[in-house]
Design a protein around this nucleic acid. Structure first.
Lengths: 131, 131
DNA sequence: TATAAATATATTGATAGTCGATATATAGAT
DNA sequence: ATCTATATATCGACTATCAATATATTTATA
């Protein structure tokens, strides 16, 4: 647990974010694992991109629980066969719930990261420089 | 994994958020577990409040790794002895890293939840109502 | 006086998630 | 021939929330 490492925090943030972003991409139309990743790379400028070890299990779970449906795509643009996922009505519902959960939380996150009183930090600095 | 349950999403969001909020509260001054919880209840209107099962292990870990220091408080306002935690300079650093990680991510979350194209969702609705 | 509510900390078990490494496979460009 | 991009999948190490349970005391209330 290295709290000085940005990657530690990014990983934790991704736990809450990745599934929302996957649903968002799928809400725009059917897509496959690799494609979703490339899309997230593009729309988040590389900021919120899960690894293969995250995305494929998610897609599998989503399908297992009926949030997505999968079809095998034999038109090979790349090489290996693609598995294209389509959001089901249940998946659309899930996306809406996720959206609402995030929307209701964002104001407090914003407050926490933008409206921070620096009183204690200033005191810390003062104490450190006076040593 | 019930994606239709708001609590599922809230739990995932909390994984990334709780430690940041704990550091935020401590950045305003020393505090104890129960106090931090009450403070979070207050400043987030009950929106982002971790459970006891989350907060006490966090405080223990934070201290174990040198991000906080603990002192036993014998002045009993409640009942049991309090353990008051103070952010160390390393803890202040950690808070800054967390702040930066969230600040760099927020724009993309905002984009994901506010600027969503509803094309596919509308299509979904149309297909459902025409059945 | 008895009792309920608030204060306060701690642990356990069920469940869930990221990441990096590793494996496999092929089309197309150099 | 070789490298890059496309494409999916799994494993192990590590990390986290939450609900339930246990313990203990002060203060307000009936």
């Amino acid at each position: 647990m290295d709290l000085i490492d940005t990657n530690y925090w990014k990983s934790l943030i991704n736990i809450g974010l990745t599934k929302l972003l996957v649903l968002k991409v799928l809400s725009k139309g059917p897509n496959h694992g690799y494609g979703i990743l490339k899309e997230l790379e593009s729309i988040t400028s590389g900021c919120c991109v899960p690894t293969f070890g995250s995305i494929y299990p998610i897609l599998k779970d989503l399908t297992k629980h009926g949030y997505t449906e999968v079809t095998e795509d034999k038109q090979l643009k790349g090489a290996q066969k693609r598995r294209v996922y389509t959001l089901t009505p249940l998946g659309v519902e899930a996306y809406k719930v996720a959206l609402e959960a995030w929307r209701s939380t964002i104001p407090y996150i914003y407050k926490a990261i933008e409206n921070n009183e620096l009183v204690f930090l200033e005191d810390m600095k003062t104490r450190l420089s006076s040593k």
